[in-house]
Amino acid sequence: MAELEAGATGARRPRPISPHLQIYRPMLTMTMSIVHRITGAGLYFGMLLLAWWLIAAAAGPNAYANFEWFMGSLIGRLVLLGFTWALMHHLLGGIRHLVWDLGYGFQPAEREMLAVATIVGSIALTLLVWVIGYFAMGGLR
């Protein structure tokens, strides 16, 4: 009825809209959800790195040497470290979603625990992968 009255006078009343992210107090579970999307987008472009690696290997020793040079540089290592962490975080975030899909982990304490496990686990797994990686290469170099 209010809308009809507003229409009669020619003025258009703004429709009510639902509140968006900035209205809520930031919480860990919400942050992990956002980070899941950001790491997904990062990995999307990170697939270029995998494609470069495979194409370089298929193209020949010179192309592969260029790839190795870049990945061995400081920037290359930082990119790979970021890629590793994004992959581990997205992996654990995905498992968290699969747990929810099965109907578990919806209690407040459980949700909080899953969020903490995602961030702590992703950092731990990243370190583990890199330590094993450096061991596989025979130490720091």
Partner: peptide, 17 residues
């Protein structure tokens, strides 16, 4: 376009190897 290009390039490289 991006997904097909990156995916096909990566698969092609593996098949060539």
């Amino acid at each position: 376009f991006f997904c097909f290009a990156v995916g096909l390039a990566s698969c092609f490289a593996i098949l060539k190897l």
